[in-house]
Design a protein around this nucleic acid. Structure first.
Lengths: 204, 204
DNA sequence: GTCTATAGGTGGATAGAC
DNA sequence: GTCTATCCACCTATAGAC
């Protein structure tokens, strides 16, 4: 299994320093999104940050704990992003476009959605991470279901099945489109698929 | 990372014996589909077959080679299945239903599509496996594109984008539906999503 | 072909100095 | 909070007897 290139220099601090724990999470998140949770080690994080493995264990004693922190932060940021969408856009179709844009931003530097990646490794994850994963998907589908129902009432969307089932289709299609697109190293594959998935909402 | 339960007994021989190499591939395939290629070891295979790690290396000297054999066999079986569908069904809609049934069969015992699983681990795979993966997806999309075009000509399907793009949507949606459904341990989630994805072909 | 034994490396994790 | 040093389990892989 090829290892990621090592870097001695610390990560670029954007504006203000975040603190070591956040730096560790940043690097670990990137590794998890590109290589999977089983595809990186404390040594990989340490090398990129220019510190030793031991100092990582000070902040995150176990990898299972690091994993929990990873998902927890991801969920928080995600919730904030959904809140921002609701404040900035009223139109259901526009909200969905911005929702898709969240995924697109992740794809653009060759990452996979963290939880989509972890879903593949599901059977090998510690219980707590498994539960967090389901909660992430639940949150996605719940939010999508609300937007879909709004759009139906407004006459913007048309589909026969219950909104909750359409939400499952959309979430799955986006995760799957990322999964496959990454093998081709081509984010345009994702963009194209996502467009058609949203387009399907206007047919009936 | 929790390890799979060990079994001393050899795997159930269905009718005739397949030979050791095939037995190894059977077990490795199951492990790869449930835990990922980085989520199992020679020790896991050896334990389930009741042999030693060393004897596995006789048949597959390297894990990279085992991985290549895994995808190659998967592709062959898949091609055969597509050939069978074409012989048994003329109607494009019926062909798609049977195509989806292939995925559904995989899901039924908690497995993920081998190549969907490997796609998540793409960045950590040896080059040859990466190329085989793309070929698998290419083959899927090519076949789907043909069926979609047939269905369009017959007036059975209606969609605005080129058939090749709709094929990408379908493949991604199926892979993604498996990915998410597995986290819930609920194959019905896949079945439901797959139905709607096919249903979208009749709208316009 | 399968075994025992082992090499050489990496995994996560800890103790204790600074 | 970060370091050096180390532990032990596990990884892939090989040598050589049977």
């Amino acid at each position: 299994m090829p290892r990621p290139a090592k870097r001695i220099a610390p990560p670029a601090r954007t504006a203000a320093a975040n603190g070591t724990a956040q730096d560790i999470l940043d690097v670990a998140e990137h590794l998890a999104q590109t290589r999977g949770f089983n595809g990186f080690s404390y040594a990989d994080i340490a090398a990129r940050l220019g510190v030793t493995k031991a100092s990582l264990h000070y902040h995150f004693p176990s990898k299972a704990g690091l994993g929990r922190a990873l998902i927890a932060r991801y969920q928080t940021i995600f919730n904030d992003a959904l809140g921002a969408i609701e404040r900035q856009a009223r139109d259901p179709a526009e909200r969905l476009k911005r929702y898709v844009a969240l995924f697109e931003a992740v794809m653009s530097d060759d990452r996979m959605c963290l939880c989509g990646m972890l879903a593949a490794e599901y059977a090998t994850l510690p219980r707590p991470m498994q539960k967090q994963l389901k909660l992430f998907f639940d949150a996605n589908e719940l939010w999508l279901t609300g937007v879909l129902n709004d759009g139906c009432r407004a006459g913007d969307f048309g589909f026969r099945e219950p909104a909750a089932e359409r939400a499952q289709v959309i979430l799955g299609a986006l995760e799957g489109a990322m999964l496959v697109a990454r093998s081709y190293g081509d984010p345009r594959r994702f963009r194209s698929a996502a467009e058609h998935v949203l387009g399907d909402l206007r047919k009936i």
